[in-house]
Design a protein around this nucleic acid. Structure first.
Lengths: 142, 142
DNA sequence: AGGTATTATTTGTATGTGCAAGCAACAAAC
DNA sequence: GTTTGTTGCTTGCACATACAAATAATACCT
């Protein structure tokens, strides 16, 4: 009795989810000035980065399910930051002028996020952790 | 143009969330035989581990917000796996017989989850990643 | 004791995200 | 060229989770 609590911290499900919540909290603060949630900001960045990408490609870039991309695209379109363009069954997004205009703030927020977690973890250690987590992601890909 | 996609993988917010989604998927499968979501199973384990703990303490153990614990407690109580016991303003949970009876299956599922991700990451590497993530969590705690 | 601050819990509401099912467009085979 | 399968997207529903506000119980100060 009393050791399960300790064992949880040796479980990747437990620790990875806790980290996700913590860093999401940090990201929410960092991106607040943009008026976008971090996830929406990431989609906008992906759109600007590769104009003409279809939703499926964006989903692969962001590692999100198709339905999630649909909804995020809805949200960005509702704010007039992107426009949907349908070609046959394929939908692509393009940033509007307003979307483009938001990019500097988004980039600044992204940098701010980096600075925040780097301050807590140390830059080196944070970068290293990020690499390891990314590698684990690839290994868990099925 | 075209390098943002690459930069995302150097962002802890991005990689940590992707890892959380992947491992949650694995955990959903592993815990399916118990009839509980992994989160509920973890709460049940915490309750069995430390009977008489109040909701606040359970929240700290699981690193979850109080409102989340309330709802998880509702869900376990609705399945008659725990009972609520109110003492003044404090609420504690105790596992019912049905809750106790589920524990072996929960433990087995937990082990199964560990085996699954260890198979993909390597046991050593997985354990090490888990330690690092846990450490990062502590460093990000405010 | 009475009023005020503190604490634990709950409730309302919102976001992120997924799965499964549906639909729409295209491709391949006959 | 119609059927059949495949692919991309959307929709309905569900769950995990949080914040802020409401509630309730307790503690503290005088």
């Amino acid at each position: 009795m009393g050791n399960t609590r300790h064992l949880m911290h040796s479980c990747l499900f437990f620790t990875a989810n806790a980290l996700s919540r913590r860093i999401t909290h940090l990201a929410d603060e960092a991106f607040r000035p943009t008026g976008l949630s971090p996830s929406l900001a990431f989609l906008l960045m992906a759109v600007v980065d590769r104009p003409g990408n279809c939703l499926k490609d964006l989903g692969q870039d962001l590692q999100l399910a198709p339905s999630t991309i649909t909804r995020f695209a809805d949200a960005l379109a509702a704010r007039s930051l992107v426009v949907r363009r349908q070609e046959g069954k394929v939908v692509s997004l393009a940033a509007t002028d307003a979307g483009q205009a938001l990019m500097p703030a988004v980039q600044a927020a992204w940098k701010d996020l980096y600075d925040r977690y780097s301050a807590a973890l140390g830059r080196e250690a944070g970068d290293d952790l990020t690499r390891r987590v990314d590698q684990a992601n690839q290994q868990l890909e099925e």
